[in-house]
Structure formats: structure tokens, C-alpha cells
Amino acid sequence: MVAMVDAVERRPTVYHEAVSGIESKVSLKNVNVHYGPKQAIRDVAMEIPGKSVTAFIGPSGCGKSTILRSINRMNETIDIARTTGSVRIDGEEVNSRSVDPVVLRARVGMVFQKPNPFPKSIYDNVAYGPRIHGLASAKSDLDDIVELSLRKAGLWDEVADRLDQPGTGLSGGQQQRLVIARAIAVSPEIILMDEPCSALDPIATAKIEELIDELRENYCIVIVTHSMAQAARVSQMTAFFHLGDLVEYGPTEEIFTNPRDSRTQDYITGRFG
């Protein structure tokens, strides 16, 4: 009987209703991910609102990056990975065979932990996506997309006079903003960020955080971070993962000031992690 009560108490707190009047953009239901025989994610269900920042927090190996990659099917690039359950964007099942993963990943951009600009010019880094997706019919259109994307990424004023120079020649923080500009250039609806600041210094991190706050006005952003301070600064919703389970999910202020699960409390107060 005690075991049954404990199981009930440890069910994750999941918010399914609209948050602050914002409807759900991404809906996950009964999502399970296996790497070979090992189960990395168990029965995750959550509703992620649009035009906001949702942070995934938890100790290393808890599954937060795995669940992030399930949104744009990046787990498929790992041979032994297998995903079950439902992931929907605006009601459309992303795991359907009719969904082209290349098109999906243009709709759902991704920024990784380490800045990864292409070995091309700054201009060509940003223009790459629009070119392959046929988003510009003329050079002038492409020029406009590149400039607008760099402006949205807060990088235009720093690189406008050297667009023909290699993107790899930029500083780490500038490279990460270039990668964000590259993601924006194909007009995504969602931007996934997997530890985007972990390789950056505090000044560059502050610039990325300011950028995230600006971008949420137009995009649904989901960020994985080991920094609870960063999650508290940039996100409106926070999900805490532990050992493959979604333990608790809700408004960031509530998660950090009044968590409902003792494991969440222990993690944010530094008792483990």
C-alpha cells in the first residue's frame, strides 16, 4: 500500500492548459526513448507554449537533451535510438512517415552546445539554409534575409563590413550568435537550444541570454541548461528531469520558489546534481 501511495505522489506535475493565455505549440504524450536496451526517457507528457522560453533542467544524464531532440527527430541520427509516443507541433504528428525530417528541421531550428559555424563566409553561413530551401528568388532577396537574420541575432553591426570573411574567425560568442542567425534564416517556428552558453564566457553568455529574451517574442524556444540561474533568468516555464522521468513542470517562478516534488527541491537547493 505504501508503494502505491509513493507511486502516486511521484507522478510528475504536468501543466496541460494554456499558460498565460498562450496556446500550446508542442505537445508530447507518452514519449519514450530507448538507446538499444537502455530506456533514457519514460512516458514524458507536457505541453510547451509558443512565443515563450521553456527550460529543461536536471543533472547530467537525466534525459533532458534526449527529450529536446525528440521534437525535431534528431534522435533518428543515432542508429540505436528508438522513440515511441506522440510529438505534435500545432497538432501535426512529427513522427508521421509523411513528415520529411529535413523540412521538419527547417521548421524546428537547433543550436548546439559548441558553436558550429560552417567553414564558409559569414554571409554563406546564413544564406545556406535559404538557398537549399529555395526561400530567395533573387540575390537581393537573399541579401535581405542575411541582413535581417544577423540583425535578429544581434550580430549585424559587428560583422556588416566583413560578411565575406570566415565565420570560424569570429569569437565564440559571435559564432554562437551566427549559428542562431543561421537557424533564424529559414523562418523556423521553434528554436531548440542545447546548452548554448556552456562553452562561452560570462559576457558572451549575457549577450546570448539577452538575445533569447528578444527572440521569444516571435519564436517558441526550448533550452537545455545545467545552470539553474540561467533557467530562472531566461525562461517562463521550467521542466525538471531526473533519471529519465519528467518530475515536475510548470511556471518557472513556481518551480524555483514553491516546487511540489521533494526531488525538485533537493536539486535546486544543491543537495544533488
Rank of each mutant, 00 (worst) to 15 (best):
T225H: 05
I208Y: 07
P196G: 05
D144Q: 11
R162A: 08
M74D: 06
N30H: 05
V2N: 13
I71N: 03
I180F: 04
Y35L: 03
V186A: 12
V179H: 00
K207H: 12
I145A: 05
I41D: 00
A181P: 13
V94W: 03
L243S: 10
G154S: 12
E210I: 02
A3I: 11
T205V: 11
A206V: 01
T225F: 09
R97A: 15
Q236L: 00
I71P: 01
A185Y: 01
Y15E: 13
F241T: 06
I67V: 15
Y35E: 04
D194Q: 11
D194A: 09
T205P: 09
I255Q: 09
R69H: 14
R69W: 04
A138V: 10
G109N: 04
I57M: 09
S24T: 15
Q165I: 00
F112W: 03
Q176D: 01
P49H: 01
A3G: 06
Q113T: 11
N125D: 13
R73T: 08
D261I: 07
R177A: 12
P188V: 15
S187K: 06
L215E: 02
K64W: 05
I203G: 02
L142F: 06
G167T: 12
A160E: 03
T77W: 09
I48W: 01
V103M: 14
S24D: 09
G63V: 10
P119E: 03
W156P: 01
R182G: 04
N116F: 00
F256K: 15
G244Y: 02
R10Q: 14
M110C: 11
A45I: 04
G109M: 04
V146G: 05
A3Y: 10
P259T: 14
R11F: 08
V26A: 04
L192G: 07
A7Y: 07
V146P: 05
I80G: 06
F241W: 06
P202M: 14
L155F: 05
F272N: 12
M4Y: 08
L163S: 04
E254Q: 15
D90Y: 01
A232N: 12
V44T: 02
A153Q: 09
S187D: 13
C220T: 15
N32G: 01
Y15S: 05
F272H: 12
H16G: 03
T66F: 05
A231V: 01
V108Q: 07
R151V: 12
K29M: 06
S121P: 09
H133Y: 14
P119D: 03
E147D: 00
K114E: 11
R105C: 12
V8K: 01
T264N: 07
K38P: 00
L135D: 01
S86Y: 03
P130E: 13
I145N: 07
Q230Y: 03
L135C: 03
T54A: 10
Y249G: 08
E23I: 00
K139E: 14
K139I: 10
D201F: 08
L104F: 14
Y123G: 11
V19A: 11
L200W: 04
Q175G: 08
S20P: 00
G273M: 06
Y15A: 06
G134R: 13
D245F: 08
N258C: 12
E254T: 14
E147K: 15
K51Q: 15
S60E: 14
L215T: 07
P166Y: 07
D100G: 04
S65H: 11
A127F: 05
H133V: 06
K152F: 07
I132H: 02
